[in-house]
């Protein structure tokens, strides 16, 4: 009743709530707007308050410089690194957790429950707790400063396994049996039936995991020492000068804006799949 009332209601209260929401949006967006303004002016303008609130004329220059040369490494290189890492983590996590959930739900093997709870237990340990031994392992494998070193320690995912397990358990058992009567092997059933049925779940997880991978900070900071292996999120931090020098704010802000674009793109693109999944529910 309240919801339909809100749609029909006109007049003052509607305007008030709109004003409230507009203020909220301004509060959230203003820092990002400021970052964008900063990326379009000269370093001198930043250093001499008051800061302008309208875009300057340095946009092309700043972005060109950031994109192609940067401070330690060109931004395009860092973007590529981040993209490889985020994609690797998202795709890797989804593949591994799909397969392990498939095993846990559809096969009877000794210690099945134990394995599930072992996987589940790792949820309790954040990356930071096991970061020293993990570093040791990766260093011994000679994976420092490599994509595999960036991706592999982060691909196992208890959360995703758990999610797929729950989803598979809602699929009626008769479906697996029907496939068996149809002569489908277990892997065939996985490919032809489970995978297509999970695609909305996969899309949702992909968005979350891509952003998770993109925003990794601590792990890349430890594992990469060469600037050309930096990921963009940690790369921004690396752009700050070590001594008392004035940081090149326009360049840093241009990099920040560039770093925000891919996650936004992923969310916007995948949103369509999301909504599609919500509207035509299967089952």
């Amino acid at each position: 009743m309240a919801a339909s009332g809100m749609v029909i209601k006109r007049g003052k209260s509607s305007w008030l709530s709109h004003i409230g929401m507009i203020i909220g949006v301004i509060i959230v967006c203003f820092p990002i707007y400021l970052a964008f303004i900063t990326s379009t002016i000269t370093p001198e303008q930043v250093a001499h308050p008051p800061m302008p609130l309208l875009p300057g004329d340095q946009l092309l220059h700043n972005y060109q410089q950031a994109f192609f040369s940067g401070i330690n490494a060109p931004v395009w290189k860092m973007l590529v690194n981040s993209l490889v890492m985020a994609m690797g983590i998202a795709v890797g996590k989804i593949m591994i957790s799909l397969l392990s959930a498939f095993a846990i739900v559809y096969f009877r093997f000794p210690l099945r429950k134990t394995f599930f709870w072992l996987i589940f237990l790792t949820l309790m340990l954040p990356v930071e707790v096991r970061i020293v031994p993990t570093y040791e392992v990766i260093a011994n494998f000679g994976m420092l400063n490599s994509y595999s070193g960036l991706i592999l320690p982060l691909v196992a995912s208890a959360t995703a396994t758990f999610l797929f397990r729950q989803f598979f358990m809602t699929i009626p058992n008769e479906l697996a049996e029907a496939a068996r009567v149809d002569g489908a092997s277990p892997m065939r059933f996985f490919w032809d039936i489970l995978l297509p049925m999970s695609r909305t779940n996969i899309a949702a997880l992909f968005v979350i995991l891509f952003i998770y991978g993109w925003n990794q900070y601590l792990w890349p900071l430890l594992i990469t020492t060469k600037p050309e292996m930096n990921t963009i999120v940690m790369g921004i931090k690396q752009m700050f000068p070590v001594g008392g020098e004035v940081p090149d704010w326009p360049l840093i802000m241009a990099t920040s804006i560039l770093a925000m674009l891919p996650p936004i793109l992923v969310v916007v693109c995948m949103q369509k799949l999301f909504i599609k999944g919500l509207v035509d529910s299967e089952k």
Binding site: P172, E174, E177, A178, V181, G183, D192, M197
Partner: peptide, 17 residues
């Protein structure tokens, strides 16, 4: 099941959605 040369109709139909 497949080697037994049978076909089955399930109570909830078990169609692939």
């Amino acid at each position: 099941p497949m080697e037994r040369d049978i076909a089955m109709v399930f109570q909830n139909y078990a169609l692939y959605p």
